[in-house]
Simulated assay, not measured.
Amino acid sequence: MADADGISAHSVAVAIIGGDDDEIAKTVRAYVVPGIGTYGNTTLETTIEGFCRSIRIVRPVEVPITLQIDALAQPDRAGCPPPSALAIAAGLADSLTGASRPRNGQDVTEHLIRQAVESRYPNVEVVEVRAGVTPATPVTIPPSIALNFFQIMGISADRISVTAL
């Protein structure tokens, strides 16, 4: 029986961004023993000591997202000025990329964006979030922008605009 993402029982899905296919196949093969299935949208072939094996991995497809945020920024407890709109946008982009990026299949929600901004900048309150798949015009969320298991949010600071209220 498969789970909600279509992964069969006794299988594993390994999501990988970047990397060399041959090295990935060797590594996955070393850790996923025969009898355990692999699941994904990409098939890699590997041969070790004459034994062939097909390994499936998830190569998430980046979905370019545009964000518009209205934020109320106030001086902090020590009276220091709040971060600028550009600093908030750069901090949000940093929170949504690299090692801390949302997982594949994770929807773009107001909560995700609010959490990323407000945990980084305690003196900033997110008032409204608008988002859209680039190049569409961003709309107020909720509802969320739904991503499937084979997709991942693609975000960059140049597609984030912050309006300080």
Rank of each mutant, 00 (worst) to 15 (best):
N41Q: 02
V12E: 04
R77A: 13
A85H: 03
T46A: 08
A90F: 04
P142W: 15
G98N: 07
C52K: 06
A30G: 12
I88M: 05
L112C: 04
D107R: 04
I88S: 01
D107L: 15
I48A: 06
G91Q: 12
D5Q: 13
I36Q: 08
G37S: 06
D94I: 03
A89C: 14
I36L: 11
V129N: 01
T134N: 11
P60V: 07
I24T: 04
V139E: 10
S100R: 13
A85T: 11
E49T: 10
S54Q: 11
T47N: 09
G40I: 04
R77L: 13
L92H: 02
G132M: 06
D21T: 05
I88D: 02
A78P: 00
T109Q: 08
I141L: 08
P64I: 04
N41H: 06
P122I: 05
D70F: 03
P142E: 13
Q115H: 12
D94G: 13
A78S: 13
V63F: 10
T66C: 03
A9E: 14
V32S: 01
T38K: 00
A90S: 12
L44F: 04
D22S: 10
S11P: 03
I24R: 02
T66H: 02
T109F: 03
G91V: 08
I7H: 00
E23L: 14
P102D: 08
V124C: 08
G40H: 02
A78F: 06
V58W: 00
V127W: 14
I16C: 07
G19V: 09
I69E: 02
L67W: 03
D70E: 15
P138M: 13
R53Y: 02
C52Y: 05
A89K: 01
R130V: 09
T42Q: 15
E23C: 07
A99S: 06
L96P: 01
A85F: 07
S8W: 05
P122M: 09
V12K: 01
Q74R: 15
I16L: 13
N104S: 11
E49I: 07
A4D: 12
L44P: 00
V58I: 15
N104P: 03
Y31A: 11
G35I: 09
G132S: 12
V33S: 07
T140R: 14
H111T: 05
C52I: 09
V58C: 13
D94N: 14
E62Y: 07
T42A: 14
G79K: 04
P83S: 10
P143N: 09
T43C: 05
V61D: 12
C80E: 15
P75K: 09
H111F: 10
